[in-house]
Each structure stands twice: as structure tokens, then as C-alpha cells.
Amino acid sequence: MRTLVEYAAGVVTLVLLTLAVMVGVLATDRTVLRPRHRVLLQPVHSALSVLAVGAVVLHVVSMIAKGYASTLDVLLPFLGGRSFEVGMGALALYLMVSVFWTGLIRARFAGSGRPWLWRVLHSGAYAAWPIALYHGFEAGRAAAAWVELSYFACALAVVATLLARLAGLFARKRGARPTRYVRLLDESTQLRSTPTVRPDRGRTARTPDVDSFDDGDYWAQLRGTAT
């Protein structure tokens, strides 16, 4: 059991952290996802984050137990006398835990005047993740090529989603979203240009031919009141 933890906890942390970051950034999308998808993704993001922090704690404890690092290395990154890679691991740990904490207290920022502060703090995830990846590749066992490629692909995906999100944000800031009024205008112009639902034609077809009736005065009068 202990060896299993020593062997796997680090890798599991990296995978969970990757998934947490990806689901987190995915949950902000509003071009493809409907509100119900985003509402589902949020608890998934939280669950992955909890698991990732749990795994990283196991990883750190098992590494200290095995003697690969000391408590001092964890408390004072880069100053404990270990390699630069281990120091980066400790740094990633701190970032992870603080980002996790901002996630826990997120609702508090709904009342405060500084939602941007929360965003900045939670964006620490974008720093923690690459640092953790670096630590994983350099300090741990040599990874297979496909593993490295997968992480690279994940990173690309996150960067792409992030760019899309930023682009969408700026587009909205410029008021590019069509309002209900604009959409109504669109619909009405479509209606007018579609021949099948033209209201005029239906009415003329049902209206009796006025001049074919004998009682011309009556119909003329009716026509007069109608117009």
C-alpha cells in the first residue's frame, strides 16, 4: 500500500490537476455549453480539485517518509538544499493549496466589492499547473513519449479554450451580442421575406370577389368601413 502511494500519488495528482484545470476552464464556456452543462461541470470541477489536493498531500507525506524530501524542503522551497525540481514541486504545492482555498471561499467574494481579486487569485491555477508538470517530468521517473504528448495536448487545449474565453469576453464588452430587440427585428424581416407565411396572400384568397356580387352598394360600403 505504502509503495503504491509512493509510486502513484504524484502521477495521480498531475492527472487530477490537469482534469480539474481543464474542466474548470471548460465550465466557463458559453458558446457551446448550455447553462445545464455548466451547472453539471461545476461540481465535477470541485470534486476533481478536492481529489487533487488529497492526492498531493499523500504524495508529499509519502515522499517525506521515504526521505526524498524533508519537512524543511516543503516549508522553505529552494532553501532546503534539494534540487531545483523539488523546489518547484513545493512551489506548485503552495499554489495548488491557495487556489483550492480561494475556491472554498468563493461565495464570499459575491458580496465584496472585488470580484477581480478572486479571479486573479484563482488564476494561480494557471501557474500551479505548468509548474507541477515541470516538477513531474524533471523530478520523477522518466515518462513515456505518449504521456508527455498527452500533457502537451492538454496544455494546448487549455490555452485554446482560454484564448476563446478572452476573445468572447472582449466581443461581449463591445456589445456584439444581439439583444432581444435585434433578434425580433431579424425574425420579422425573415417573416417578410418568406413567401409561405405571407399574411397578405392568405387574406386575399379568402375575401370574396366584391364586384361579382349584385348588391354592389352593400359591398362598397363594407369595403369603405374596412379600409
Binding site: 451547472v39 461545476q42 468563493r106 461565495a107 459575491a110 458580496g111 470580484p115 478572486w118
Partner: peptide
Amino acid sequence: ARRAVRMCPALALR
């Protein structure tokens, strides 16, 4: 309601 506050992506609901 608390869940809705937590979920608000814009931190606008309280």
C-alpha cells in the same frame, strides 16, 4: 439559493 450564489460565474448574485 446558496448553490446559485456559488455557481454564479460573474460573482454577481448574493
